[in-house]
Simulated scan of single mutants.
Amino acid sequence: MYEIFQKYLDDKTTLTQAESDYIQSFAIIKKLRKKQYLLQEGDIWKYDAFITKGCLRTYSVDEKGSEHVNSFSIENWWTGDRESLLYQQPSRFNIDAVEDSELVLFTHDNFELLCKEVPAFNAMVNAILQKSFIAAQNRIQASLSFTAEEKYLNFINKYPGFALRIPQTMIASYLGMTPETLSRIRKQTAKK
């Protein structure tokens, strides 16, 4: 499992063997079964987490019991609750496995140490954070200005494999619509 993370590092940056070994020395391997929690609302998130296999979702549950999906994360993506991690406050989110998943975790203290002591790792992390910020901006813009059909088409164009891996009810929640609306849109777009 760690080999997948090492390949990711090799694709994103250049490290010496000593730096690679040093990073690996802090890695924690975690396996999740489908529907198993990585984080539950109210807990404090303590890790930087990289997904080597599977799919996870980050979501909240409102007072009526409705789920609101904030994001999905798949292989070669990072996941977690940055707000809880950085401010050490109880999370407002749940993160669970949509399918059986495997992750490489680093305690945040160790992750910060790696960023400090391995400049190439730090540069990679900064590039990832910038891309994440841009993705968040684009998601907000789509949420505010796209029609329901445009939201769905944008989603399947950006993440073509997600529709095959993620239940339609979760996709509808992510897009901010009812499952019935998503079903109607899918039927309309299939006819075009």
Rank of each mutant, 00 (worst) to 15 (best):
T181I: 13
E19K: 06
V98M: 07
K30H: 13
E63G: 13
R184K: 03
F106A: 11
K131L: 10
W78L: 13
Y174C: 10
Q88Y: 03
Y22C: 05
Y37W: 07
W78I: 13
S145E: 03
I23W: 00
I128F: 15
L175M: 11
T107I: 03
T16D: 02
F106S: 11
T16Y: 02
K31W: 05
E83I: 14
N154S: 03
Y174G: 03
I23K: 02
Y59Q: 00
K131M: 07
K53W: 01
Q36N: 13
T189D: 07
E102P: 15
S183N: 06
I128W: 12
Q188G: 07
M1R: 08
Q168H: 04
I166T: 08
K158H: 03
L164D: 05
I44N: 01
F5V: 00
H108W: 15
Q89Y: 07
K7I: 02
F72V: 11
T107Y: 14
R33G: 12
N70F: 15
M1L: 07
L113W: 01
G80T: 00
A136S: 11
M124K: 04
G65M: 05
P179S: 00
T79E: 09
S66M: 09
E19H: 08
N157Q: 07
A136E: 08
A163F: 07
V125H: 08
E67Q: 09
R82E: 11
R82I: 13
Q6I: 14
K191I: 09
C115Q: 15
I156P: 02
F111H: 15
S143A: 13
S143P: 12
F72Y: 10
C115D: 09
L32P: 00
S71G: 10
V118P: 10
T79Y: 06
I171N: 01
I51M: 08
M1D: 14
K53S: 09
I95V: 12
P167H: 00
L38W: 01
R184F: 02
E149L: 00
I44Q: 03
V61E: 04
S60D: 07
E99Q: 14
R165A: 08
K187M: 08
L56G: 02
L85N: 05
D48M: 14
Y22Q: 05
N110G: 14
M170D: 05
E99D: 08
R57C: 06
W78G: 12
M177R: 06
V69P: 00
K158L: 05
V104Q: 07
Y152W: 14
D43R: 00
A172M: 01
L114Y: 01
Q6S: 09
R165G: 02
A148P: 15
L144S: 11
V118N: 04
R165K: 11
F106D: 10
L113T: 13
R92H: 13
G65Y: 08
Q130Y: 13
P167G: 00
